[in-house]
Write a protein that binds this DNA or RNA. Structure first.
Length: 544
DNA sequence: CACTGATGCGCG
DNA sequence: AAAGCGCGCATCAGTG
């Protein structure tokens, strides 16, 4: 059932079969040692018998296997599962719960050992067999066992998908990208030169501010120039500038838009990140504390709409682009068993909220809902919250309670059992407060984090299940070869599948079925729908 | 010169 | 100068 793989310092791999003994406990039954070359055969045999591979870190193992054409169906990513189980409230009382940070608490792909700061050999993390057995004990003893079984399995499958997607890459047309840039910025300039349209906008700004040498990319200098022109600004942010009346403002905002595109996704980006017609970001499963994925390299989490026209299917292929509609409020509905909100979500959720009489317009419904999940206290979100609470008391009570727990220093958990980190443990937290007011503000901020954690984190679990089901079914129905439809992009509540044209309709149907199945997998027969918007397109820009 | 934090803005 | 969550990245400005 389980086979543990451990890479030794000499590059050989220790293969340990793990099975249940008569008492139902897990024990290592046999250990062999294979060379790198022999490993391929081990994997092939194991795949034929539905083995779940156990290894320290998918990001370290799986790229090399894929390189050899070895796709793996199931695994246990000990590093990712360790992070879940160490913090989970559902493992309280087990040795892994609350363990001090150790060698397993490292970033994806990290290479460490206990004796040195830097180690070159891709050695496995220390004592993976003990770690695995400790994890299994913690899961099997947990009152939240079912949730943790699903969560750790989905997390591990996600790690496989992350590596597979990077290997396939997002189909990216450098020619289209170049044309898009030329259209918006002017033709590609010589190195060190500004593109023509930026230069023109900048000239207008300098003229209007009477600042011929202005460096528009220096916020400090720009603020000085704007103030010298009589404008009361404290920053150079868009939203602050856009409310000013001055001839410099329009060209300045135009400049900033273009500069942003140039700097973030201009020709330099294209040269650096698109190779052989593919963009290959590195995905970082659970890069966020909520379980959402992060990415690294190329800013894949923030692909601007302006360049999505460069994502183009290969000839004879198509892109199936799908996103889960209003995922987070629907997740909240299921978490809170809010039947009124479930009824509102029968069709478009925000229209349903309007129909309930809680608010007047769809826009109000949206901002009120987001405000409730983020903890808005002011503005339209804060103002509309009481009306939402009257119409949907259960849903609002759930997020209010999550906020209260956080403000009091407590821990909240997602539906499947991922728990929020204890306050004070996150690196990026607010600086140590000195005054009472600052301390209170810090606790309120933490309350907003825990408030959102339960919703965002459970949405991430739903998405992970959706993704896992999609992968499994794509494999079953179409195969896993180079010419078969495959996932190429995933972003929180959205997926892109690159598919041969003839399979597009079947893939699109599958995406919807998988969403419904993910809902059932998490929430059983709860009356909450998880509709997806699916588009079959040639370019990503044409989706929604 | 290399590093760090702040700024600003793109995405869900 | 955001209000209201979660990210990544480029650039500037200040420091060692």
């Amino acid at each position: 059932m389980f086979t543990l793989l451990v890479r030794l310092p000499d590059e050989t791999v220790e293969v340990t079969a793990i099975a249940r003994d008569d008492a139902g406990g897990l024990v290592a039954t046999s250990t062999t040692r294979v060379s790198g070359a022999e490993l391929a055969e081990t994997i092939r045999i194991g795949e034929a018998t539905a083995t779940r591979w156990v290894w320290d870190d998918t990001a370290k193992w799986y790229p090399r296997l894929l390189e050899q054409g070895l796709r793996v169906e199931r695994c246990v990513d000990l590093r990712l599962c360790h992070a879940i189980l160490r913090l989970s409230a559902a493992t309280r009382g087990t040795p892994i719960h609350g363990a001090t940070r150790g060698p397993w608490d490292v970033p994806q792909g990290a290479i460490v050992d206990s004796t040195a700061l830097f180690v070159v050999e891709p050695e496995s993390l220390p004592d993976p067999l003990a770690e695995f057995l400790a994890q299994r004990s913690a899961i099997e003893a947990s009152p939240g066992r079912a949730g943790l079984e699903l969560l750790t399995a989905a997390e591990s499958t996600g790690a496989l998908i992350a590596v597979e997607m990077r290997r396939r890459g997002i189909p990216w047309s450098a020619d289209r990208h170049d044309a898009l840039l030329a259209d918006r910025l002017g033709p590609r300039p010589a190195p060190g030169e500004r593109p023509q349209l930026l230069q023109e906008a900048l000239t207008e700004v300098r003229l209007a501010l009477d600042a011929p040498d202005l460096n528009p990319d220096s916020p400090a200098e720009l603020v000085r120039a704007l103030r010298a022109a009589g404008l009361q600004v404290t920053s150079t942010r868009q939203w602050e500038l856009s409310r000013l009346e001055h001839p410099a403002i329009e060209p300045l905002l135009r400049y900033k838009k273009m500069q942003r595109l140039l700097v973030a996704n201009g020709w330099a980006w294209l040269d650096a990140w698109v190779v052989g017609g593919r963009f290959r970001p590195e995905y970082v499963p659970a890069g966020a504390a909520t379980g959402r994925w992060g990415t690294s390299g190329g800013g894949a989490l923030q692909l601007p709409r302006a360049v999505r026209g460069a994502v183009v299917a290969d000839p004879g292929w198509t892109l199936v682009v799908a996103d889960a509609s209003q995922l987070e409020p629907r997740i909240l509905t299921a978490l809170a068993h809010d039947e009124a909100m479930a009824r509102a979500g029968d069709g478009d959720l925000y229209e349903g909220i309007v129909a309930s009489g809680a608010v007047a317009t769809r826009a109000e419904a949206k901002v009120a809902m987001l405000g409730a999940m983020y903890g808005a206290t002011q503005g339209d979100g804060g103002r509309l919250l009481p009306r939402l609470a009257r119409a949907f008391p259960r849903a609002i009570a759930l997020v209010e309670e999550a906020a209260r727990v956080g403000e009091q220093g407590g821990v909240v958990s997602t539906f499947l059992g991922r728990s929020s980190p204890p306050p004070g443990s996150m690196v990026d937290e607010l600086p140590p407060e000195n005054g009472r007011a600052q301390a209170d503000s810090g606790m309120r901020a933490w309350g907003r984090f825990t408030r959102n954690f339960v919703v965002q984190g459970t949405a991430a679990e739903w998405a992970l299940c959706w993704l896992g089901i999609l992968r499994r079914e794509l494999g079953r129905r179409f195969g896993t070869g180079a010419d078969d439809p495959h996932l190429v992009f995933f972003l929180h509540d959205e997926v892109v599948i690159h598919a041969p044209v003839e399979s597009a309709e079947a893939v699109a149907a599958l995406v919807e079925e998988a969403a419904a199945e993910a809902g059932r997998l998490l929430f059983g027969r709860a009356p909450v729908r998880f509709p997806v918007t699916v588009a079959v397109v040639t370019t990503y820009a044409d989706a929604k």
